[in-house]
Nucleic acid binder design. Sequence first.
DNA 1: ATTGAAGAATTGTTGAACAATTCTGAGATT
DNA 2: AATCTCAGAATTGTTCAACAATTCTTCAAT
Lengths: 247, 247
Amino acid sequence: MTSAESGLPGLPGSIAAGRSKASGTAGAALGSAARLRVATPSVADRVAAELRLQLAEGLLLPGARLTESTISEELGVSRNTIREAFAELAAERLVVRHPNRGVFVATLGPGEIHDVYTVRRFIEVSAIRGGGSPERVAAVRAAVEEGKAAAAADDEEALGTANQHFHGAIVALAESRRLNTIMAQVLAEMRLFFHKATVDAHFYRSYLDDNEKICKTLEAGQLDRAGDLLLAYLNNSEEKQRAVHGD
Amino acid sequence: MTSAESGLPGLPGSIAAGRSKASGTAGAALGSAARLRVATPSVADRVAAELRLQLAEGLLLPGARLTESTISEELGVSRNTIREAFAELAAERLVVRHPNRGVFVATLGPGEIHDVYTVRRFIEVSAIRGGGSPERVAAVRAAVEEGKAAAAADDEEALGTANQHFHGAIVALAESRRLNTIMAQVLAEMRLFFHKATVDAHFYRSYLDDNEKICKTLEAGQLDRAGDLLLAYLNNSEEKQRAVHGD
DNA sequence: ATTGAAGAATTGTTGAACAATTCTGAGATT
DNA sequence: AATCTCAGAATTGTTCAACAATTCTTCAAT
């Protein structure tokens, strides 16, 4: 739908617009502690966030070119700022820079898919083998239920995100900021080519039982067994992905 | 030594200076094939590389502030380009951005150190348990020998890098591009506060035997045992780091 | 000492400019 | 017809200058 001239949410269409409310009122009303938390994200960050969103929603398909001037106009932001956002996204591998040629939505060839799954096997399996606090385990359970609800409602989209929540929750067992962001990035990369896979409406549905069993095993404290199940699951998933995409 | 007005290697000190040599001569002298491979990194990338280097060498200590205008002048590069470089470094966590306040060399508190080691435990231990091709194992062995040589030569600096090569080689067993870059980033983060640890000249030396034993176990194909040894090593290392820094 | 407020310095962002590079579309050549 | 060449158009890479917003300093007044 070309997203048109929507502009960035929260940004005035043009530069000039009444301001100066935030620091004064918020600071006085909420106290200094709250004020520190509010640090508004920069425009570049918001641009990156917006693009990340469009990427996740499949509005920008792999291989698509992101022209600086176009995005600059669409979002009402200067080219320099766009470039800063591109630097962020490139660091996350969501986008690839071809010098002097432009930036393109990343494409994942067969080798890349295998690589992504390798990362997932390393991190997810280790995470589940390490177990986690009751709260974290409960979060895994919640993701499983979320998936069941989505399946009952026949909402494929929700099913997909529930599945990602499930795997995110598994990594979160480790309580590691870095591992969480690594996992988040890997999942974001996968979303890039999931759109193709989702053509089969039953793609995720087959995982529901696996998730349930893995979760139950985890809850029972059989960590090594849970790890084995998860490993099998990931191998199977990679296989299916490979089938959907060019061998 | 403040690095002064050296400018960026390969960049003319100021903007105006004899030009047009690069593409012409290089292209003609090296032939077209070479030219294609060379895809010159952007100025922003070179700035990032230069800063990464200064960070690794301890010229920029944790907490230090990186002022845009200062770096801009020192390197003879525009502020906008500096900002792009900052975006890269921030994505690698080498640098932290405080909105409206500036970017600072990242500092690793106790919690962060634990986090870094968590990532290493996950990735390195999984990698060694998975084993690798004879060439990759040989690379691990090479890193061990590199360390011994450095110890013999009493070169603490070389000892440190050899140690990093050792751990990099272990992750490389997995043949995963993503895992390699993740590990490289984590090691870069650690270099940030290694400088403090290196005060003790015998800091790395104690690891030499561990590395040798781990490597030998790996070569013998006793992967699980090697993993256990590596895990113990990492726990021990974290402990020592914690001791050196304010616990 | 604490507070407040002017002033200086710095970051965030823009817009315009220009060189270098890549892409495009004739037109010329075989 | 197929392909080569080359001028012109489009795009990226980079710089510069400006200005609003924010943070840091300083210094006086209480």
